[in-house]
Amino acid sequence: MGLNRGLLLAAMALLFAASLLPEAAAVRYTVGGNKGWTQGVNYTIWAQDKKFYHDDWLFFVYDRNQMNILEVNKTDYESCNTDHPLHNWTTGAGRDVVPLNVTKTFYFVSGKGYCYGGMKVAIHVEKGAPPPAVSAVKSNSPLSLPSALRSSVFIPAVFAAAAAWDSLLMLL
Score class of each variant (00 low, 15 high):
66 Q>W: 07
113 G>H: 07
55 D>W: 14
56 D>H: 08
84 H>L: 14
95 R>G: 00
51 K>I: 01
77 Y>V: 08
90 T>E: 03
49 D>P: 11
83 D>I: 07
72 V>D: 00
86 L>C: 08
51 K>V: 02
74 K>Q: 15
107 Y>C: 10
105 T>G: 07
48 Q>Y: 08
64 R>D: 05
55 D>T: 15
61 V>W: 05
64 R>N: 11
82 T>K: 05
104 K>D: 11
96 D>I: 12
82 T>L: 01
86 L>K: 14
82 T>G: 09
85 P>D: 09
89 W>N: 02
79 S>R: 13
111 G>Q: 02
77 Y>P: 09
51 K>Q: 12
108 F>R: 12
60 F>I: 06
68 N>M: 08
99 P>G: 01
80 C>P: 11
85 P>I: 09
88 N>H: 01
79 S>C: 07
95 R>Q: 03
62 Y>E: 05
70 L>I: 05
64 R>L: 03
91 T>S: 05
78 E>T: 13
93 A>P: 01
94 G>E: 05
57 W>R: 13
67 M>F: 15
94 G>N: 04
81 N>E: 01
96 D>C: 10
102 V>L: 14
90 T>I: 06
60 F>Y: 08
113 G>W: 06
59 F>E: 13
80 C>W: 02
61 V>M: 10
82 T>H: 08
89 W>I: 02
83 D>T: 14
51 K>T: 10
56 D>S: 03
100 L>Y: 04
107 Y>D: 07
69 I>K: 08
81 N>D: 13
111 G>A: 02
62 Y>L: 09
53 Y>D: 10
105 T>S: 11
94 G>P: 09
99 P>R: 09
55 D>L: 14
55 D>N: 15
56 D>V: 08
48 Q>V: 10
79 S>K: 14
48 Q>E: 14
67 M>Q: 15
